[in-house]
C-alpha cells in the first residue's frame, strides 16, 4: 500500500510539474490581467493606477454613454447576421465540395485559402472593394452590367450584413473543412440503405447526412457566437462604427474607452459585462457538448 501511495504522490507531483510552465503562462498572460480588469471596474483610476473604490458606479455611468445600448443591440445583430450568412455558408460549401464531380480538391484548398491571410490585410482589401464612386472595385464590376455605383457600407441596413459577408469570406473555409470531415465520417452503409429505401440524392442529404452532422453543428454554432460576439477590428477599420452608430460593436466601446479616452475603469466595466454574457453562452456550450458526449 505505502508503495503505491507514494507512487501516486510522485505521479501527481510530476503531473503538476509538467503543467506548471504552461499554467504560469496562463496566469501571466490571461488570468492575472483579467483579475486586474475585474478589480479595476470597481475603482476610479488615474491612468492605470487605482485611486478609490466606487463600487458599481462605473457600471452605472455606462448608461450615460449614448452608444451603450446601440452597441449591445448591434452586437446581437452581428451575431444574428453571422448565423444567417456565416453559419449556413460552410455547411453548403461542405456539401458542395463533397458532391462535386470535379474540382474537389482544388475547391477544398481554395475555400481554406483566405483563412491564412492576415485579417488586417483582408480588411484593407475589402475597403477598396466597397469604395464608393467609380473607382470602387465592386462598383466597377456592377458598372459592366449597367448598375449605378452604390455606397455599400454607408447604405442603411447593409453595413452589418456586408461586414459579416467579409468575415464569412475569410473564415467559412475552415469550418467547411470540419463539416467535410464530419460528412466523410458517416458510415457509407447508411447512405446505401437510404438508397435502397428509394431515397433520391436530395432526400439522402436531408435524411442521412445533415442529421448526422447535428452534434457538430451545435458546437460550431456556439463557437461562432462566441467569436462573433467579440467583433472589433472589422467595424473599427472598415466603418469606425458608422453610419450613425449603425455598426458600432460592444468591443469597440471597450476599445474607445481604453484607447481614445484613457478611461480604463469604464473599459474594464464593459469588458466584465462581455465576459458575463459570454460565460452564459458557454454554459450553453457545455450543456450541448456534454450531451453530445453522452450520445
Amino acid at each position: 500500500m505505502p508503495v503505491s501511495q507514494k507512487k501516486n504522490i510522485n505521479r501527481a507531483i510530476s503531473g503538476w510539474l509538467i503543467m506548471l510552465p504552461t499554467l504560469i503562462l496562463f496566469a501571466f498572460y490571461v488570468w492575472e490581467p483579467l483579475l486586474k480588469i475585474i478589480q479595476m471596474s470597481l475603482y476610479n483610476a488615474q491612468g492605470f493606477t487605482l485611486t478609490e473604490f466606487v463600487g458599481l458606479d462605473n457600471y452605472k455611468s455606462l448608461l450615460a454613454n449614448p452608444d451603450f445600448t446601440i452597441a449591445w443591440k448591434n452586437t446581437f445583430m452581428y451575431t444574428f447576421w453571422s448565423l444567417i450568412i456565416g453559419f449556413c455558408v460552410p455547411i453548403l460549401l461542405a456539401l458542395l465540395i463533397t458532391e462535386t464531380p470535379v474540382f474537389r480538391s482544388l475547391t477544398r484548398v481554395a475555400v481554406y485559402f483566405p483563412n491564412i491571410l492576415p485579417g488586417l490585410a483582408v480588411m484593407l482589401i475589402w475597403l477598396f472593394f466597397f469604395k464608393p464612386g467609380n473607382a470602387g472595385v465592386l462598383n466597377n464590376i456592377l458598372a459592366t452590367v449597367g448598375i449605378k455605383p452604390l455606397t455599400w457600407l454607408s447604405a442603411k441596413g447593409w453595413t452589418i450584413p456586408l461586414i459579416v459577408v467579409t468575415m464569412t469570406w475569410r473564415s467559412a473555409g475552415s469550418t467547411a473543412l470540419i463539416y467535410m470531415a464530419g460528412i466523410s465520417g458517416i458510415n457509407p452503409e447508411q447512405v446505401e440503405a437510404a438508397t435502397i429505401d428509394g431515397a433520391g440524392i436530395i432526400r439522402r442529404i436531408f435524411s442521412v447526412i445533415l442529421p448526422s452532422l447535428t452534434g457538430l453543428v451545435k458546437v460550431m454554432l456556439i463557437l461562432q457566437i462566441i467569436s462573433v460576439f467579440q467583433i472589433l477590428y472589422e467595424p473599427l477599420m472598415m466603418t469606425n462604427g458608422g453610419p450613425n452608430n449603425a455598426s458600432i460593436s460592444i468591443m469597440m466601446l471597450v476599445y474607445n474607452y481604453a484607447f481614445l479616452h484613457f478611461d480604463f475603469p469604464k473599459a474594464a466595466a464593459v469588458s466584465v459585462m462581455i465576459c458575463i454574457v459570454l460565460s452564459l453562452f458557454t454554459a450553453l456550450y457545455f450543456v450541448v457538448s456534454g450531451r453530445r458526449g453522452k450520445e
Binding site: K156, G242, N244, L260, H261
Partner: peptide, 18 residues
C-alpha cells in the same frame, strides 16, 4: 471635445445618408 465631435459626426452621417 472629442466626444462632442463624435456626436456631431453621427449627425453628419445621418444627414448625409438620409
Amino acid at each position: 471635445t472629442q466626444e462632442m465631435y463624435a456626436e456631431l459626426t453621427k449627425v453628419m452621417q445621418e444627414v448625409l445618408t438620409n
